[in-house]
């Protein structure tokens, strides 16, 4: 029962509340409560489960299965010993792939606007060079630059992304054309000549569930004071979500 109490305290209380509770605890219990708090931090770092899905149940199971012991430092020591080998390997592989990258990559412009800006520059300023490059060679470079955005397909596009695009389609003046270009080209990376469509409706009709990994909407228990409803969070990786049924 005491462990349960520590778990609830470690999981549910804010930092300030937890500190206050710690002060009122006997020394022995304080140690256990701190261990429970560390476990919570550890669970969060694992990133296996979205933050909003972390529950006391997960924590309780973690405690029951692995006990409240700190992990032995040995595995990390071995990890550090392997680090120089990994660095040499990484350096070798970078050296080998450098010429290919130079051949297929597009000019970069230092920018604070993130990767979208870079791809947009490639699209608008260097179109002939891109056309001359085989699509198969360009694709991985683009994917690598744009990260998750480049993987987006119409069916898996989040409501949040649609909301932004829809806002623009309703007549917003884009502050930076290149940002918009990047957004639309990400729908179909192979079609580099596709025109920018500002007046396209939000892709509601194109969404009919053919996506391999659609967005999951998690409705949390937290109320949203500005709307009076609960907060909903989108999770793009279905694999991370725990379902009940």
């Amino acid at each position: 029962m005491r462990i349960d109490r520590h778990l609830v305290a470690a999981f549910e209380l804010s930092d300030a509340e937890f500190e206050a509770l710690l002060c009122s605890m006997p020394e022995k219990e304080r140690g256990q409560a701190l261990e429970a708090r560390r476990l919570k931090a550890g669970l969060r770092e694992l990133r296996e489960t979205p933050e909003c899905q972390l529950t006391t149940e997960h924590l309780r199971r973690a405690v029951l299965e692995s006990g409240m012991k700190r992990p032995a430092p040995w595995p990390w020591a071995w990890g550090w010993a392997l680090a120089p080998v990994a660095m040499v390997g990484a350096w070798l592989s970078l050296n080998r792939s450098e010429p290919q990258l130079e051949k297929t990559s597009v000019p970069m412009v230092a920018s604070d606007s993130g990767p979208s800006e870079r791809i947009a520059m490639a699209e608008s300023d260097r179109a002939p060079a891109v056309e001359a490059t085989p699509a198969a060679a360009v694709q991985p470079v683009v994917a690598g630059l744009e990260g998750p955005k480049a993987e987006r397909r119409p069916g898996s596009q989040s409501a949040l992304a649609r909301r932004t695009e829809r806002s623009r389609s309703l007549g917003a003046q884009p502050p930076n054309k290149s940002l918009i270009l990047a957004k639309w080209t990400s729908h179909d990376d192979s079609d580099w000549s596709a025109p920018v469509r500002f007046d396209s409706p939000a892709p509601i009709e194109r969404e009919a569930g053919s996506s391999p990994e659609p967005v999951v909407v998690i409705v949390t228990e937290s109320p949203d004071p500005s709307t009076g409803g609960h907060q909903a969070v989108e999770v793009s990786r279905q694999a991370d979500v725990v379902f009940g049924g």
Partner: peptide, 24 residues
């Protein structure tokens, strides 16, 4: 429920550049 605007949470591995784009 209403969708909260934490776009960065869609791509936790994307890190700072993605956040910067979202802020822009």
């Amino acid at each position: 429920a209403t969708l909260i605007g934490e776009r960065a949470s869609l791509a936790p591995s994307a890190g700072q550049p993605m956040k910067a784009a979202a802020e822009a």
